[in-house]
Simulated scan of single mutants.
Amino acid sequence: MKIGFCGLGRMGMPMVRRLLQAGHQVSVWNRTPGPAQQLAAEGALVCDTPQALGQSCSLVALCLFDAAAVESVVFGPAGLASADGLTLLVDHSSIPPADTRQFSERLQQANGATWLDAPVSGGTGGAAAGTLAVMVGGPADACLTITPALMAYAQRVTHMGPVGAGQVTKLCNQTIVTTTIAALAEAVSLARDAGVDAARLPQALAGGWADSTLLPLFVPRMLQPDTPVHASLDTMLKDMDTVAALARQQGTAMPVAATVGQGLRLASRKGLGAGDASGLIRLYDHISEHSTNS
């Protein structure tokens, strides 16, 4: 397929590489040219603007940081909405469901294109391995059309309902992931303070009720002094703020998620935000140090 892709960050780069490896013709645009030029050397075509990308590709995927970035790329000067050739936009970004629904209506009015919200889960490792989970909101027939292309970097594509349903599903995902990471940080801290080798927790708990995909991934990261950034703590905070906003709007009680969100905010205030989400363990180090010193 001929596919356009905007947003070549930690997730976007390996996703485009998977598309290229699958034999698709991929055109790319990125706000900073470096990543696009790197992919050009691997077979991608580089476009100067999102509009130019949309003129040459009827199908365009986005993988951007937040709603402001999505709005700018789609509706800003030389944006995708001004491209007559665009017919289907697939947004892999994690943004509020209400913004997704509004953007979908605006794009439909601008050039008649269909919007699919299709956030992903699985991290950079999943993107590189082609094992992402994609949760899709929008017309079912459009989801069916795009699924063969998405399978270049996904192991599963699930249609969740109308526009916005994919984003709600991602918020459920982030609620589970983030609260689990916080629980792992507390468990690692508890083991260390008791003099138990926390590095053996994944082995000891494997197969039990505490086992999870995250257990063997995050415990080693929490015990390493300099963990490479797979997903930043501030990205988790952004998503948990969106969870909190949706919960308030709906009247959904989420006491655990609210507490974890405040922990993320405290960690960010302590300068940990740009680091990997596993750095939440440093928050407990600070608490332990303060308790010891006092």
Rank of each mutant, 00 (worst) to 15 (best):
V196I: 15
V196C: 14
A198I: 03
A199M: 09
R200N: 12
R200F: 00
R200Q: 15
L201W: 02
Q203L: 06
A204L: 15
A204H: 04
A204N: 03
L205A: 12
A206S: 15
G208K: 04
W209H: 10
W209K: 08
D211S: 12
D211N: 11
S212E: 06
S212G: 11
S212V: 05
T213G: 06
T213A: 11
L214P: 01
L215F: 08
L215R: 03
L215K: 02
L215C: 12
P216W: 03
P216I: 00
V219S: 03
V219L: 08
V219R: 02
R221F: 01
R221G: 00
M222E: 08
L223G: 08
Q224T: 12
Q224P: 00
P225T: 01
D226R: 07
T227V: 06
P228H: 05
P228R: 06
P228V: 03
P228A: 06
P228E: 08
V229R: 10
V229G: 01
H230K: 05
H230A: 13
H230R: 04
A231D: 01
S232K: 10
S232V: 03
D234M: 11
T235Y: 06
M236A: 13
L237Y: 12
L237K: 14
K238E: 11
D239K: 10
D239A: 09
D241N: 15
D241T: 15
V243G: 02
V243W: 02
A244C: 12
A245L: 14
A245C: 13
L246I: 07
L246M: 13
A247S: 14
R248T: 15
R248Q: 15
Q250C: 13
G251S: 08
G251V: 12
T252D: 09
T252N: 06
A253I: 07
A253T: 05
A253R: 11
M254L: 15
M254S: 01
P255D: 10
A257K: 00
T259P: 01
T259N: 13
T259W: 09
V260K: 09
V260H: 09
G261W: 00
G261M: 13
Q262R: 15
Q262D: 14
G263P: 00
L264R: 04
L266W: 03
L266H: 07
A267C: 14
A267L: 05
A267W: 02
S268W: 06
S268T: 14
R269T: 12
K270P: 00
K270W: 04
K270A: 13
K270H: 12
G271K: 05
L272I: 06
G273F: 03
